[in-house]
Amino acid sequence: MDNLYRQVILDHSDNPHHHGELSDKTNDIELKNPTCGDVLKLDLKVEDGKIADAAFSGYGCTISQASASMMTDAVIGKTTDQAEEMVQTFSSMIIGDDVDTDILEDAATLEGVSKFPARIKCATLAWKALHKALNK
């Protein structure tokens, strides 16, 4: 099972979904992780309270890129309230809290990052960007 999880993470990092920029974005933000140098720019298109589209660009480690890819997959089509609930669930999961991770889709495979404190900021960068972009 661990190998399957690792493969999902590597697949998202090597072939990220929704990588790029949106020309018709309504919300955007750029965040940096000063600890390791990861940079993530997130573009969102929010229409009628739903995330109609999302894209990210920037650079970083395998974990940050995979997390951004998984996050964009998971939130497109969700309401902003659902997306905020996902941010909270992801944040709780990544620090080791026992939570129902079903709403996170592939991002639930990052649960093991909680055992590696140095990687928590990498995994949460995209999710923090989502929260800040929605509340900007």
Rank of each mutant, 00 (worst) to 15 (best):
Q7W: 14
S69K: 00
A129P: 00
T62F: 09
K78H: 10
G96F: 10
I103C: 14
E84D: 07
S92A: 15
M93E: 05
L125M: 05
A54N: 12
L130V: 03
M86H: 08
S92L: 12
S57K: 12
C61D: 01
Y59S: 02
G20F: 07
Q88A: 11
V113F: 04
A123R: 01
C36F: 03
T26S: 07
V46H: 13
T124L: 14
L110P: 12
D53Q: 02
M71P: 03
A126Q: 07
S23R: 06
N15S: 11
H19T: 04
A83P: 05
L42K: 06
I120D: 15
F56H: 11
T80L: 12
D48R: 06
T124Q: 15
D97T: 09
P16S: 00
E21W: 00
L10C: 04
A126L: 00
S64L: 09
S23K: 13
Q7E: 15
T26Y: 04
N33I: 00
A108L: 05
R6Q: 15
S114M: 02
N15M: 02
T109L: 05
A118T: 11
K115P: 09
D53G: 04
H131L: 11
P34A: 01
T124Y: 10
M70L: 04
L134V: 09
D38C: 07
A133R: 08
K128H: 04
R119I: 06
A133S: 07
T109G: 07
S114Q: 10
A52H: 08
A107C: 15
H18C: 01
F116W: 13
V87E: 11
N33G: 01
G112Y: 04
L4M: 14
I94Q: 14
G60P: 14
A129R: 01
L40A: 00
C61F: 03
N3K: 11
L44N: 07
K78E: 14
T26A: 01
L104I: 12
K136L: 07
I76F: 12
N15R: 09
